[in-house]
Design a protein around this nucleic acid. Structure first.
Length: 493
RNA sequence: GCACGGGUGUCAGAGAGGCUAUGAGCGGGAUUGCAGAUCCUGAGACCGGAGUUCGAAUCUCCGCCUGUGCUCCA
């Protein structure tokens, strides 16, 4: 089954194709580094991380470019507020960006260009656009003239140029700048006092926001490339501006073959925004939940749908994550090195083991179908959880060599799907050592062991009241006891 | 107002003409002294109205509700 993706420009799912066989060129709009990253950024880069992983898994060689916008009004303002050089601010925020993304197990892009390194290319493009009369020089900057290519207007949002003109009403007259029409957008802004500046044929100044992505994507990927993505809000005006700039400059269209946009994160039903006071940074939320839990919560919806972030979403994710990790731990402990012959995998097999392997194969193929259908991670996770149940069920029926061999197969199954593709798995060592590594464990081990011995005694005497009293005592110490067939185990809550 | 998405059980959230979504919660059962974990299992849904069809949550039309964009924003 071929990979299908929803393309914003064509407004439907289309077969995915690449310009050069086996290779994918992908440009994703990065962050403007004036502040810490928030949940919305996490969701966006998680969405494209999944796309990145799935494309590679499907055999494509992906060239993934993600930029940093390191010069922009908000950066200048924030740096002034902080009384620091804008470069310091930018460097610090880029460093924390990587901390956040690494914590969420987001694979690195191939390149992270900064727009200030591409001013020269931007100037070239702007010069050419002026020459082709797609842009004009005004008092306070250079602007793109929308009327020079009106047919491109609304290509991502379906907006009609006439309707917008009428709807805009009075705003058309007062643009607050020297541009001719309110729809035109800045390519170059002439410097105001105290601002960082670059030399240009139009005097000192700095680039407009939209031109940077055109310059960087063109320089690094060429006049046309396969995937361009970003948040839903970037469709207009940012990405439409890129279509104007790129296509008018090169005369080649479409500049982008597949436009992909991810949905937003809402908090308790409201749009996340600073003014509403419901703004969560990644750092804040990671103080409360494990990064893999957050990752699961955010990929547990289709990337184009909005997500409503709330407590229940996180507790659901917590439980499901624990279930995945527990199953993974179980199979890791049961797996054996020696190769044991497994029966043929087929769901019609008379052997329970063969049937179970067959079921896992079917689930793997359903998982792949889901990912091929516009990267439907939600559906893929449903298959993963179904597999966890099947594995758990089968494990309890097996013993000896069969169990060891089956567990070995399951380790690979889980590592491939939950690990490589969904990026949800911690390392083997972490999974196995997690409980033991708690530093508090050493301090209380002796006390806990004593209490457990005492509890074992009264349990043998069937004095359940005394046994429960001991367990309550342990609970107040923050220790949870779990009875298993091999005796009690305990963990720190 | 214009544009683009949505409205699925208690909640979250897939599916897109006939076939179990999945998870949490709730009910029953196995295991267990109990609890937890695990497994088996039950109840429970497709906004309203028309239409197309042998058959519609899925397609068409109308209505209602809702999110986002139209200004910096992932």
């Amino acid at each position: 089954m071929p990979l299908r993706v929803h393309d914003t420009r064509r407004r439907e799912k289309v077969d995915f194709s690449t310009m050069s066989p086996g290779k994918v060129s992908m440009y994703i709009c990065g962050v403007t580094v004036y502040d810490l990253c928030h949940l919305g950024h996490a969701r966006c880069y998680l969405a494209f991380d999944l796309i990145h992983r799935w494309l590679e898994k499907s055999g494509f060689d992906v060239n993934y470019i993600q930029n940093f916008t390191d010069i922009e009004d908000k950066i200048i303002i924030r740096a002034q507020e902080n009384g620091e050089d804008w470069r310091e601010l930018v460097d610090r925020n880029i460093a924390t960006y990587f901390e956040d993304m690494d914590a969420l197990n987001i694979l690195r892009a191939d390149k992270y260009p900064r727009c200030t390194d591409y001013v020269e290319q931007m100037i070239e493009i702007i010069t050419d656009l002026i020459q082709k009369e797609n842009a004009y020089v005004a008092d306070d900057g250079v602007y793109f003239d929308i009327e020079s290519a009106p047919e491109k207007y609304g290509s991502l949002t379906g907006q009609n140029i006439e309707a917008v003109r009428q709807g805009a009403g009075g705003r058309v007259d007062d643009t607050g700048s020297s541009k001719r029409d309110h729809k035109d957008f800045a390519l170059w802004k002439k410097a105001k006092p105290g601002e960082p500046t670059w030399d240009s044929p139009w005097g000192e100044g700095r680039p407009g926001w939209h031109i940077e992505c055109t310059a960087m994507s063109m320089e690094l990927l060429g006049a046309q490339f396969d995937i361009h993505g970003g948040g839903h809000d970037l469709r207009f005006p940012h990405h439409e501006a890129e279509i104007f700039q790129g296509e008018c400059h090169t005369g080649i269209e479409p500049v982008v073959h597949h436009w992909l946009h991810n949905g937003f994160v809402n908090i308790d039903g409201e749009k996340m925004s600073k003014s509403l006071g419901n703004f969560w940074t990644i750092k804040e939320i990671l103080e409360k939940v494990d990064p893999m839990v957050l990752r699961l919560a955010l990929i547990n919806a289709h990337y184009r749908s909005p997500i409503d972030m709330n407590e229940q979403l996180l507790t659901d994710a917590e439980k499901n994550m624990a279930r995945i990790e527990d199953t993974y731990r179980k199979v890791l402990l049961a797996e054996e090195e020696e190769p044991v012959q497994l029966p043929r995998a087929e769901i019609t097999s008379g052997l329970p083991l063969g049937r179970s392997l067959g079921l896992l194969e079917v689930m793997a193929s359903d998982f792949a179908k889901a990912m091929d259908d516009d990267f439907n991670s939600r559906e893929a996770i449903a298959k993963l959880l179904a597999a966890m149940r099947e594995i758990s069920r089968m494990m309890s029926e097996l013993s000896g060599d069969d169990l060891a061999a089956y567990a070995g197969y399951c380790v690979e199954w889980i590592e491939e799907h939950a690990g490589q593709i969904l990026g949800l798995l911690k390392s083997r060592a972490e999974i196995l050592a997690e409980a033991e590594e708690d530093p508090r464990r050493a301090e209380i081990t002796e006390k806990v062991e004593q209490l457990l011995v005492k509890r074992a005694e009264v349990r043998t005497a069937k004095d359940w009241a005394a046994a429960d009293a001991i367990r309550d005592e342990l609970t107040t110490m923050g220790v949870v006891v779990t009875d298993t067939s091999a005796g009690p185990t305990w963990d720190i809550l």
